[in-house]
Design a binder for these strands. Structure first.
Lengths: 146, 146
DNA sequence: TCAAAAGCAATAACTGTTGTTGTTTTAATC
DNA sequence: GATTAAAACAACAACAGTTATTGCTTTTGA
């Protein structure tokens, strides 16, 4: 994929981890690499199975811990799916997702203007808005064919 | 609350349940009654504890089953919270919620025009939109004071 | 009143996730 | 390059929220 954009350099991962007091390890690098190479929005389980092909001795708990580390240092985001397993995403710029109610597939949406949201839904008085979450639920193309 | 609007009549519950092949039982009525009388958006656990004061022998699993029955017959909606326990709501007209990231409190938002959403976020091609989900995340008034 | 259908409590089990343990690896310093 | 403290590791155990299973009880509808 994008190996020359800086984001992909191993040094990037090391640097980011270092900035939050984290170490760079072989497993962590593998989780990160998988996240970069895989289809978008894999679940922790899927990441585990993928990384396992390279490092057969890795455990699911370790994958969870490493994903947490990546989220903490800002290299990934965790996207809770409402029902079922959360999904992980390398993109960290703010955007929304569509989610297939049958297979759970998530697809990125173009980032929406928060200004529109702010006007559209009025928060209760005294409520300090941190961010919005928008999801488009429905049936993806694949599932629609069946 | 609204005891004269028809929605609150016991007959309403019986009728709705009957229409989907469900029975009217003392526990089910108690769960429903609690949901009507309680604060908005309680969790299954909270409902369990509340109903338990009236029916001490009820179990959490029964509460879940009864909530499921109420959701199935359209009298309640289940609102997954992303993280933590789902919450239940008697209102069935379509609307959105704000959610406090500290205490989990949910507050109804005025229903937003779906048309705006449709224009704002464009679903991927081939994706058949079932509905939208909008959440305002942040800090509620109570938590903000601390 | 009576049989069939559904609900019930009490579990056990399940999924997704996090905490704990003692051991190994890493990065920073010498 | 050797040393050492901090962190990550595997292998669990445990957790929360939820669902499935069981054999018994209640409700419904005839």
């Amino acid at each position: 994929m994008t190996n020359e954009d800086g984001i992909g350099r191993p040094a990037m991962l090391r640097e980011r981890l270092g900035s939050v007091g984290g170490h760079m390890t072989r497993r962590r690098a593998a989780v990160y690499r998988f996240l970069r190479g895989a289809w978008p929005h894999p679940t922790a389980e899927e990441i585990y199975l993928g990384v396992k092909e390279e490092l057969p001795r890795i455990s699911l708990a370790t994958v969870y811990k490493n994903l947490e580390a990546l989220v903490n240092c800002g290299l990934a985001v965790k996207v809770p799916a409402g029902d079922g397993a959360a999904r992980y995403d390398l993109r960290t710029d703010h955007h929304y997702h569509s989610r297939c109610l049958q297979c759970g597939t998530m697809i990125d949406l173009e980032p929406a203007a928060e200004e529109i949201l702010r006007n559209m839904v009025k928060a209760p008085s005294g409520f300090e808005v941190s961010h919005y979450r928008v999801e488009v639920l429905g049936c993806c193309e694949e599932c629609g064919k069946r």
